[in-house]
């Protein structure tokens, strides 16, 4: 996968080789530079790609997003899985009174989120986390209010998540990719908000809990732990994010 092969020097290196090399050298380097803290030790215990799988998610293990840029991409992949699963359900069991325009928009959004999810899955390859076990028991899919309120929450959270994750990325290429996606999430968020209440597309005061700043007209921005705390309502798996970069 070209995207993950930025430092490719030999034609026959595989994606996994590159990732393994990257992780290995990072670990060694952290140790060398005397900056190896608890996170580096944890990484060394969980394999080269920093990715642990827990198929049922019920044990004490969990889904480990990993570290570095790969960890951030897995973080985005996790959120996109959530969104794609949600909209897939929305379109499988349309709420009562879904009109043609809403159906057209929600189908498009579903397809965009599936595209995002599948893109991350393909790009991450063997470093990708497993498919998450979603928990939508708090959502009433037959209710327009419930569905749109959840959609709004997901889209606004997604925007804040990408905005907060940008600074955690090392690769400019990944930053651009994240930028390509976050503006589409913001377009979704604005549309969903307008479906709920026309004109609320950029009600930044209501987004203050997600880090928005009304005075400067800045949208939300949250760190991964803040985002995952909110998203955990909708995921049965325990997501391990403590190896993600923090600055």
């Amino acid at each position: 996968m070209e995207i993950l092969n930025r430092t490719k020097k030999e034609g026959d290196r595989t994606l996994l080789d590159d990732l393994a090399q990257k992780e290995l050298s990072r670990r060694k380097f952290l140790r060398f530079s005397g900056m190896a803290g608890a996170s580096a030790l944890v990484i060394s215990g969980v394999g080269l790609t920093g990715c642990v799988r827990d198929d049922d998610g019920s044990g004490t293990d969990g889904v480990n997003l990993g570290s570095g840029d790969i960890g951030i991409l897995n973080y985005a992949y996790a959120l996109e899985q959530l969104e794609a699963a949600f909209y897939t359900q929305v379109m499988a069991t349309p709420y009562s009174g879904m009109n043609a325009l809403e159906g057209e928009y929600l189908k498009d959004i579903r397809d965009h989120e599936i595209a995002h999810r599948e893109f991350f899955k393909a790009a991450l390859g063997t470093s990708a986390i497993q498919g998450l076990d979603v928990d939508f028991s708090s959502i009433n899919f037959s209710s327009r209010d419930s569905v749109l309120a959840t959609a709004k929450a997901f889209e606004d959270l997604g925007v804040a998540a990408y905005n907060g994750a940008g600074k955690l990325l090392v690769s400019a290429d990944y930053l651009t990719l994240a930028g390509k996606i976050v503006s589409v999430e913001a377009r979704h968020a604005a549309l969903i908000r307008d479906l709920i209440s026309n004109g609320s597309f950029a009600d930044l005061a209501s987004l203050a809990p997600l880090g928005a700043n009304t005075a400067n007209a800045l949208d939300g921005a949250l760190n991964p732990p803040q985002v995952l705390a909110i998203a955990s309502t909708y995921v049965r798996n325990r997501i391990i994010a403590n190896n993600l970069p923090t600055s």
Binding site: N163, T176, G179, R187, G211, A217, A221
Partner: peptide
């Protein structure tokens, strides 16, 4: 979006730029 990579070494400015970027996308929508 095109300028964000040039801000990659400045976390605060990058984040603020991304926050503005998203607001513009909401406007566009």
């Amino acid at each position: 979006k095109g300028q964000a990579p040039r801000l990659i070494n400045n976390n605060d400015v990058l984040t603020a730029a991304l926050q503005i970027h998203a607001v513009e996308a909401r406007h566009a929508s």
